Amino acid sequence: MTQGQELVIEHLAAGYGKVQVLWDVSLHARPGEFVAVIGANGAGKTTTLRAVSGVVKPTGGHIRLGGQDITRAAPSQIVGLGLGHVPEGRELFPLMTVRENLELGAAMRAEARATQAQTLDHVYTLFPRLRERQGQLAGTLSGGEQQMVAVGRALMGRPSVLVVDEPSLGLSPLMTQTVFEALKAVNAEGVTVLLVEQNVGLSLKLADRAYVLENGQVVNEGTGAALLADPRVREAYLAL
């Protein structure tokens, strides 16, 4: 995998039409860091990731990837600069095979196309089940297997920064652990990871640093361990 780049978000404002969701979001992930964003439903976590990948256009603030301003860039340009996005809900092509879905992830970058076979083998090493299922239609897979494909597809683009939206949604504890172990392995290889996840306990245990998002604004930040021990976080998100 490619070495990680820095991702910087400064005073980000964004929304959908006349509905503003993000008001003043500032966070960053240093090269090779694992950073988590936690918060309740509707806090703006998914919108933040969509703004980073260019799907939602910011109305204020700046986003930089590896020092380059991507605030107004098209999604294809952002992918070309090294961003991989694992969307909430997976968004696979159900009538295409596992391998075909994975290979689509390499289509947008010349570097990824040139090393497609090598990267595919790496994805199969991370997720051996996908090698077994590579000829199967994606729509016939279990939820956990589909999540593996979604992560693998993003990795096929050889990203330097991987943003991941709610990977445990609808998964069993065992499948959740499998997916999170793969994300940690990718991060250990040097890829910067920005994770949005409602499994707060697991996220904070894995994260180098984390941010708490409420009503479109960052209200707390710190190391994963510090936030995991914070009484306010434990009461609000861990029911402790």
Rank of each mutant, 00 (worst) to 15 (best):
V8T: 15
E10H: 12
L12Q: 01
L12R: 11
A14W: 04
G15D: 03
G39F: 01
A43T: 06
K45S: 11
K45A: 06
T47S: 10
L49T: 14
R50H: 07
R50L: 10
V52N: 03
G54Q: 04
G61W: 01
L65E: 03
G67C: 08
T71E: 00
A74R: 15
S76C: 12
G82K: 07
L83K: 12
H85P: 10
P87W: 00
G89C: 02
R90I: 10
R90G: 11
F93T: 09
R109L: 08
E111D: 15
A114Q: 14
Q118A: 14
L126R: 00
L126H: 00
F127I: 13
R129K: 13
R131A: 13
R131G: 12
R133D: 05
G139V: 06
S142F: 00
Q146A: 05
Q147L: 04
M148H: 07
V151K: 02
A154R: 08
L162S: 08
V163D: 01
V164I: 12
P167S: 10
S172V: 11
L174C: 05
A188H: 15
V193L: 05
L195Q: 03
V196K: 10
V200Y: 01
V200M: 01
G201R: 15
S203F: 02
K205W: 03
K205P: 05
L206F: 04
L206T: 01
A207E: 03
R209K: 11
L213D: 08
E214N: 08
T223L: 05
L228G: 12
V233M: 05
L240N: 10
